[in-house]
Amino acid sequence: MSTLHSALPVRRGLLYVALAATAWGTAGAVAALLFRHSGLGPLALTFWRSLGGAAVLLALRPFTAPRRRNGAGRTARATQAARNGRVAQNGRLGRILLNGLGLTLFQAAYFLAVRHTGLAVATVVTLGAAPVLVALGGRLLMGERLGRAGALAVTGALLGLGVLVLGGAGDTGVQLPGLAWALASAAGYAAITLATRHHARTGVADDPADTTLWSFAICAVCLLPFGLAEGLLPAAGADLPGTALLLGYLATVPTALAYALYFAGAAAIRAATASVIALIEPLSATAIAGAFLGEPLTPATLTGTAVLLLSVTALARAELRSTGQRTGPRAA
């Protein structure tokens, strides 16, 4: 593997991506409650999620901005910035735009898939196709090689997702429009993951909080006209305090916090590893659905969940073994 330019230890990168995926799993339950009680549609909900996430990150910007050093360190930093400022700024704008457009496609297409084919199928198809697209893109664009252990882990993850899809197909059905939207969502996810990884490898990784803030701002701008057409305000008679509370949670934990953790963690580990670890999202969503929403945990669900967990664990261990020489001196 090539040396990474992320300052984050690999162990912490794995943890950050796992925490982000767990938080994402709660977003589906919150969205289900909002669809049920607020009357908001998928595009309007995605708009409010993006706008709220950007607002939270903007409010926290004074605390998350990189600290500047005084004296000689600050002078050297300013001199280097002045020397490469124009080129770096142009590249940074392009990276932020790519992340924002990828995030827009990922989120909007996912909620559209949920509307057309149901939550379970949309989630597992989106996150099942993402590792395949990421592995293919990482191989073709960055020369990444999974190795035998990584390939087996990805195969196991896909088998687990296949069990989940086939096990639920009899109840929810797999509709082609929803499947197409889920694949489009997976493409947006893969683009974000590969871009984050590529920028970290080439030494131009940006501040994760700054990247997330601008990505959500771009997403909100792109979705505003579609949200207006769908209806941005809750339906008459909706529980406004409850809706505001759920939207606030959606904007903070599974949005602002989770994406900042993901962007930071994905820069420290392989792209395919990040995408497979993020499969924790359907696992946490399944657990929440069974425990709090009354959805039954079928044998297919339990089997697929077990295979996914084993695959995620195997791939994480392979990542740590392959980067053991780097993680020792850098571990915090």
Rank of each mutant, 00 (worst) to 15 (best):
266 A>S: 14
189 Y>D: 01
299 P>W: 08
199 H>G: 12
221 V>G: 00
282 P>Y: 04
216 F>W: 04
295 E>P: 01
245 L>P: 02
189 Y>M: 09
229 A>G: 15
275 S>L: 03
281 E>C: 08
215 S>I: 00
292 F>Q: 11
268 A>C: 05
248 G>Y: 00
260 A>M: 14
209 A>M: 03
254 P>A: 13
248 G>L: 05
238 A>D: 02
200 A>V: 03
283 L>P: 06
273 T>Y: 02
219 C>G: 01
204 V>N: 06
199 H>P: 04
247 L>C: 04
256 A>F: 12
213 L>G: 10
235 A>Q: 13
289 A>Q: 05
237 G>M: 06
274 A>R: 02
290 G>I: 08
230 E>V: 03
271 A>L: 07
189 Y>I: 03
284 S>D: 05
255 T>M: 07
202 T>D: 05
251 A>S: 11
275 S>V: 01
224 L>N: 04
285 A>S: 14
269 I>L: 10
192 I>P: 05
210 D>H: 13
214 W>G: 01
308 L>N: 07
229 A>N: 13
218 I>H: 06
229 A>V: 06
191 A>P: 00
288 I>S: 03
250 L>K: 00
282 P>T: 06
216 F>D: 01
212 T>V: 09
299 P>E: 12
298 T>V: 08
199 H>F: 14
242 G>T: 03
233 L>P: 00
197 R>W: 03
191 A>T: 15
257 L>G: 11
260 A>D: 09
